[in-house]
């Protein structure tokens, strides 16, 4: 297991380098003179020169990148062009919001999606299966932000059960936090829950046709145990793959959800940065997001090893 982990980390070194290169390369996508563009409307020559120097644009490209990378490794992601604040600090300030929202949304998606998929597969062809399939199809096609707006209308504006927006940190007031984060989490969880249900269903259908399921029934194992212990456990591989993929997507989806519910997370930070042409902030957010995805992928590989005795042995 430890060997698998080390192996996996070593193999991802080139990937991490390429990811950082991509993040830094954003500056080269800027049309014309990046410094002039980033300086905004009617900049003074001093402002342009300041930006150029602050981003290191006056140095050769390789040197720029290496300098930026070394800083990033030390946890320094530069200063905001707009406020001059420390980017690392800005990200840390907002990280908790996005992290809590994402974790909660993943939990909701798992708790709804996997049982729904198992149920649909177990009751294949019945009205339950068909109802779940319809819900899944809708869940995948409905834009998350639209769902969020509808939830606001129904549960915040009409019923008044939940606040329409805003955020209270979990450390301040757990109840308030839960109230504020419920609608966003449900919004964010809808699509991944649907995908999870769909893939769990199809993976379960494949597994339930296997001979060992018949063997389990032949020894009198109760149906729930057949489904969970023999079915779901063997269907877990593809389900976990989908889960990790959806978790990564969800991180992106949180951008929009944060915007809708007025939550001060990484997503709203990124959008603010786009409007402010604040490249270092943007780079910082993208880098952190990519690293989180890499960690998710790493955990997925470990989960594979944990679930599949054949992989573990290697």
């Amino acid at each position: 297991m430890a060997g698998l982990l080390v192996n996996r980390i070593l193999r991802s070194v080139p990937l991490v380098l390429l990811i950082t290169l991509g993040v830094y390369g954003l500056v080269f996508l800027i049309p014309g003179d990046p410094a002039a563009t980033l300086a905004g409307d009617n900049p003074t020559p001093e402002q342009i020169a300041h930006i150029r120097q602050s981003l290191g644009l006056d140095r050769p490209a390789v040197e720029q990148y290496l300098g930026w990378l070394l800083d990033a490794v030390r946890g320094q992601l530069g200063q905001s062009l707009y406020t001059g604040a420390d980017v690392t600090g800005m990200i840390l300030d907002r990280f908790g919001v996005t992290a809590w929202l994402s974790v909660l949304a993943v939990l909701v998606a798992v708790v709804i999606g996997i049982p729904a998929g198992v149920l649909a597969a177990a009751a294949r062809g019945s009205w339950i299966d068909r109802a779940i399939t319809v819900a899944v199809t809708a869940g995948i096609a409905i834009p998350g932000f639209w769902l969020g707006l509808m939830l606001i209308i129904v549960f915040a504006l009409q019923a008044g059960v939940f606040p329409a927006g805003g955020y209270t940190p979990i450390s301040e007031d757990f109840g308030e936090w839960l109230l504020h984060v419920t609608l966003p989490a449900v919004t964010l969880a809808a699509a991944p829950a649907a995908e999870l249900a769909r893939h769990t269903r199809s993976a379960m259908l494949g597994v339930l046709e296997q001979d060992y399921i018949r063997s389990a029934r032949a020894k009198g194992v109760a149906e729930w145990a057949v489904l969970i212990r023999h079915g779901l456990k063997n269907a877990a591989g593809p389900v976990i793959t989908v889960l990790s993929f959806q978790a990564a997507l969800l991180l992106g989806g949180s951008v929009i959800v944060e915007q809708i519910f007025g939550m001060p997370g990484l997503g709203s930070l990124a959008i603010q940065a786009v409007h402010d042409k604040d490249l270092p902030v943007l780079q910082g957010v993208v880098l952190v997001a990519a690293l989180i995805v890499m960690i998710i992928n790493l955990l997925t590989d470990l989960a594979y090893g944990f679930l599949n005795p054949k992989v573990r042995a290697v």
Partner: peptide
């Protein structure tokens, strides 16, 4: 009453 099957390769749960 118990039963055994044709395919011993696939009749046992691979993850148990």
């Amino acid at each position: 009453i118990a039963m055994i099957f044709q395919e011993p390769m696939t009749s046992l749960n691979p993850s148990m």
